[in-house]
Design a protein around this nucleic acid. Structure first.
Lengths: 265, 265
DNA sequence: CTCTTAGGAGAACAGTGTTCACAGAGATCG
DNA sequence: CGATCTCTGTGAACACTGTTCTCCTAAGAG
């Protein structure tokens, strides 16, 4: 760094990053931006390199200076999508009340659903079938993924540590083999039962969102936030919540804090 | 069968279906067969009409005598896939013991998972994002879909009627609006709580299968039949099973009947 | 026997991803 | 400063794709 000034007398501003690379990054961003528009509008399958090039007044072949192939571009978009989702979840987690685990979980889950609803093509891109080109896990992508699920697991962790759930029942359900698998995973330091709880709410969350997003729910239940709330609160209850839970009350509190955090903007 | 002699004095056998249509149906089947192979091998996105035509010694344009477009072909394959899944589920339901609801449910769920695992591309075709071309619901397809979910709901129905679950807790969780939605749906005659139970196990089932199939599970849990069993039995327990359930025992019984029904073949 | 029509061939069009040889501008170095 | 070299873009080309025409042949219908 601190590249040497090439000119004669121009000011003391030294470029921390070479100008060459800077404009290169700019065009990379532009490519991704216009590609993102096409992706959001017509889906990943319809993303055309030529159309992208055309939209920004370039030759198709020029794009290959920035991305090795079409699937490389899509991979980049997928990574950004993961990053966006993770940001959303982290923001929701931080904005939620730290003393009300039930509400916090619901708010994080809701923000997950909302992201999926507002970014349908991105959601299918990252949670749908892998295009088989990027099956080899680029570690950069994997990091974003884990950042995203980490938020969910963080919720579970807080719930467990707050002592409002009893993991005993779940623990008794684990077969020895499954318990070993969870221990091998070791994503938290809370033991196999907590990890089983994570997987439980995670599959439920994803299952409902996917069915909803891909139009597999019967018309009366399609796009139902109420069904989602019921299932998400219920999931937390069913992993072993101590004592009864007033669903309506939890929803009311969640709605309140959501109004609170969304109104100022 | 009993093909008619084309000669002079052929018998009184009148063709119930004109020979013309019969050979037409044959080529339609052939197209679908070779298309299915390509689909299974390289995925729906890589299905090429020209490749199909090439593989069967035809001209690409000739295929258009049988299918209006590429997406029409894919739709036909999707319908077949739905039908295949429904057949599998129905067979599993019938083969399972009628007096052990827990085991029957697990066996049906397992067959669902197994079908997804052995037909990954078809599973993504029918449960993945709709290609937006066939968004208009062809009633024929919808029928196959309902035939498939009907089996799952049938399991729930039997469970409820057998009285081994108490839907009271689930019923108390339903908000008035959600209850109205379920009543509007009215897929069974067991009331909203039972339908909520159906949706619960359905989302969990699909969520876990989808995550597993698309490689979103952490390595230790990937392709884990044990995790699946635990979640599926657990789902039935959590909708309100009366009394404790010995997971290992249920799995043992399920394994036994599976050995029994699979061995003879 | 004619006559109609279904099914196929082949060319053509517009589009795609990808590769290559070439050219110009920017930065680097003697 | 000039020479050089690397980066970035162009334009042509190749091998594909889905789709639509026109034309032709053979099988069934009357």
């Amino acid at each position: 760094m601190t590249p040497i000034a090439t000119g004669t007398q121009h000011g003391a501003v030294t470029h921390p990053v070479p100008r060459r690379e800077r404009i290169r990054q700019t065009t990379i961003d532009e490519i991704k931006t216009v590609a993102h528009e096409q992706l959001a509008e017509h889906g990943a399958a319809a993303l055309s390199l030529r159309a992208v090039a055309r939209a920004m007044g370039m030759t198709p072949s020029a794009i290959y200076r920035y991305f090795d192939s079409r699937s490389a571009l899509i991979s980049a978009l997928a990574r950004d999508a993961y990053s966006s989702l993770a940001d959303t979840l982290e923001a929701a987690f931080l904005a939620a009340p730290a003393d009300d685990q039930m509400v916090r979980w619901l708010l994080v889950a809701r923000s997950h659903r909302r992201w999926a609803k507002t970014h349908p093509t991105e959601y299918t891109l990252i949670f749908g079938p892998r295009p088989a080109d990027l099956t080899g896990r680029p570690t950069a992508v994997q990091n974003e993924v884990e950042r995203s699920v980490a938020v969910l697991f963080r919720c579970m962790q807080e719930v467990v540590e707050a002592g409002i759930v009893d993991l005993g029942v779940l623990d008794a359900e684990l077969s020895p083999g499954l318990r070993a698998r969870f221990q091998e995973w070791d994503c938290t330091d809370l033991g196999p039962a907590a990890e089983a709880a994570c997987m439980l709410v995670w599959t439920q969350l994803h299952g409902l969102i996917a069915l909803d997003l891909f139009d597999h729910l019967p018309p009366p239940l399609a796009d139902s936030a109420e069904l989602f709330d019921q299932q998400m609160i219920g999931a937390l209850v069913r992993i072993g919540h101590r004592g009864p839970v007033d669903f309506a009350e939890v929803i009311r509190r969640a709605d309140l804090t959501e109004q609170h955090t969304l109104a100022p903007t």
